[in-house]
Design a protein around this nucleic acid. Structure first.
Lengths: 240, 240
DNA sequence: AAATTGTAAATTGGATCCAATTTTGTTGAC
DNA sequence: GTCAACAAAATTGGATCCAATTTACAATTT
């Protein structure tokens, strides 16, 4: 479980020399705290669905797995609670926060609003570099067989089309919404023809972006997310 | 500082009897933790502008003021960071996170999108109770002289029109946006004729709601927030 | 056997202590 | 006087300890 924790630190303190020596700067100075390492690991595990909804998150267990005390674990759990990924009850511990279909549906509505707006603001600023990057993710999405990667690449594709908007606050909000719905997107893509349909819609969105048609990109994005939501509700038996 | 903390606890564990005995239940069981008390106090101080942008928040100082150790303070600061109200740099401490006009402007755009949508969803569900409550806040807003209360009542008025939407996720997002912009709203209302103009617009929004005109309420809300933003940018010398 | 009470174990919240890092102040060289 | 090098103080991050609370479980009563 200690994978990724580097034990050999370079001693800091001579930043002036660094530029002269042309060393690949590793951005020492803001190394991850124990808390943020635990946070990232738990966040990934929850989003990927490796931890089931309602699963208890014992501070001692987690602290043991990361070879730390419970203090950083509590910090991580607190952050995750703020993001809505875990629920914390005083003296009763934390559990993975599952979201109902009702809640998921609302977050999809939020995404429709947000992402439709942001991609529209993004289109005028898109560079050929960001467009080819997006096309890369799009292709990768189509080719990949691993269901675990579908939702990740889907997310990367969409998000890469939003960055040029420069709307940092909106992007943060979208990030959180994607965090909370990723499990559901994964489920939706795993069902029949989800990936093929999504890929077609991705191509259409890409084309609109390449043509500089912001209004079209916005509309197609809204319809795309909307259709993901509807199929999800249909297949998982929830009614709006 | 211990005001509000009761030292005489009724022993829990007999919920069946409670109903028979008709005791006034005081909802023991989710008392506030030290961390959340510190969190609420700091949040209020930052939003109200009692703490200036960039002001350092020393863990020891705060812990001393609340007669606790630094642990709950760290928890509070961590939550506030997630909300964007403070910035935390490893080993360097936390400071109040000021937002630039550029950032504030973006958050206003976010609010225009969000609140326009949410009030539209709310109108069909509004009851006469919630409408009269909103009208109460609206009146209070007009009558009050204290500039500190303007932004609070303004916020209460608007928010009371959103609750009936039942869109919990959207409401959370709006809450955060309001937290971050409240200082700016306060500044805008303090300048010439800000309150009178706002009140007129509030009345128009209320009327649209009472008439069940969701589209109108949505449009007026968007225009209202938009005008607050524009006046703010104009008076504080920022350009879009 | 079912319900209730009491007790021990498990778990979390908070205080205190130590280590890591930054900041501040001082000294010395030029 | 200015700058670097160094030491001391201040501050934060993390570990360990204790207290508060909940949970699990055995004992008791009916």
């Amino acid at each position: 479980m200690n994978a990724g924790i580097c034990t050999l630190w370079i001693t800091p303190g001579i930043p002036q020399m660094a530029s002269k020596l042309k060393l690949k700067s590793v951005d020492i100075g803001n190394r991850a705290s124990a808390g943020s390492i635990v946070y990232e690991a738990l966040r990934k595990a929850i989003i990927d669905g490796d931890l089931e909804d309602g699963a208890p998150l014992r501070q001692d267990d987690i602290a043991g797995q990361f070879n730390t005390s419970r203090i950083p674990v509590r910090e991580a759990l607190s952050k995750l609670e703020q993001e809505g990924l875990v629920k914390n009850r005083r003296y009763r511990g934390a559990v993975v926060a599952g979201i109902s279909l009702r809640e998921a549906s609302e977050i999809f509505d939020f995404r429709i609003l947000m992402e439709g707006e942001v991609i529209g603001a993004s289109v005028p600023n898109m560079t050929s570099a960001s467009l080819s990057k997006a096309r890369g993710y799009c292709e990768e999405f189509r080719r990949t067989e691993d269901s675990k990667n579908w939702s990740k690449l889907n997310r990367k594709f969409h998000y890469s089309l939003y960055r040029d908007s420069g709307l940092k606050y909106h992007l943060d909000m979208i990030d959180n919404a994607l965090d909370r719905t990723e499990r559901y997107v994964h489920a939706q893509l795993s069902i029949s023809q989800g990936v093929a349909k999504a890929h077609d819609e991705h191509l259409a969105i890409l084309e609109a972006c390449e043509n500089g048609n912001a209004e079209m990109a916005s509309r197609l994005t809204r319809e795309h997310i909307s259709s993901v939501r509807d199929e999800l509700l249909e297949h998982l038996g929830g009614r709006r």
